[in-house]
Amino acid sequence: MPQIELNNASYSYRVGEGQTVRALRGVSFSVEKGEFVALTGMNGSGKSTLAKLLNGLFTPSAGDVLIEGINTRDEERTFDIRRKAGMVFQNPDNQMVATVIEDDVAFGPENVGIPREEIVERVDWALEAVGMSEFRKRSASKLSGGQKQRVAIAGVLAMKPDIIIFDESTSMLDPEGRAEIMEVAKKLNATGITVISITHNMDEAAQADRIIVLRKGRLVLDGTPKEVFASPEVEACGLALPPATELARMLTERGFAFSETVTDEDGLVEGICAQLN
């Protein structure tokens, strides 16, 4: 059984009188445990709506979303789903509940009634995992964007999730902050946690095992970074190529030839060396 399964999921919402926006139209795919999936598309492609279907914040207007076999329509299991699938949001300032960092991390476990001693253990462990232990007593407002997002990740980790969904969690950060969050995401993925990263940063998407591309609410591409960036569809979806891929293309115009699609800098360097040395 796949860990995440979408069967023909659609989502529409109303704006004003009689107008409906069809944010998602019959999307189907499944994700196995431990995958690192980037979900991408331009603004308005439906990617953030899709993210919110994955932990029952939205329920599909048609079709089904199953998390570890539990249908997100099953209201009695909503909290089970949200414990399994944690979510880190876009704006670091709008997802912290408490002023003091350790209190914020404890918020989730407190909500589901974990005993006190265990909360303390989980908070210690979660802050350690994101490298924020020394900040535990500090005030959230004094942190950098990257640090705030790491605290948000710790808050999700304290729920011991199987899946973490990053809903454009790096888009408001500076490059340092982005790198911090990507590093943490990869580290957690290495421990077996499934990562779904919603992003329009192609450098980040290129680091995933798999990229799913949405356009106007439909799934248009689904494959490895090499497959996706080789497709002429990418730019039609309003996406850019990663800088390394772009450069490979410029070199191809100048007489170079790469045996496979370049997705990152190291691949590009290898490809160039093979042709020049």
Binding site: P175, E176, A244, L247, E265, D266, V269, C273, N277
Partner: peptide, 19 residues
């Protein structure tokens, strides 16, 4: 604490490799 443009970074990597 500042990064390089990607072109400069790639150029450095190539220089390291003898180009």
């Amino acid at each position: 604490g500042l990064a390089l443009p990607s072109a400069a970074r790639i150029a450095d990597k190539l220089t390291e490799r003898g180009i």
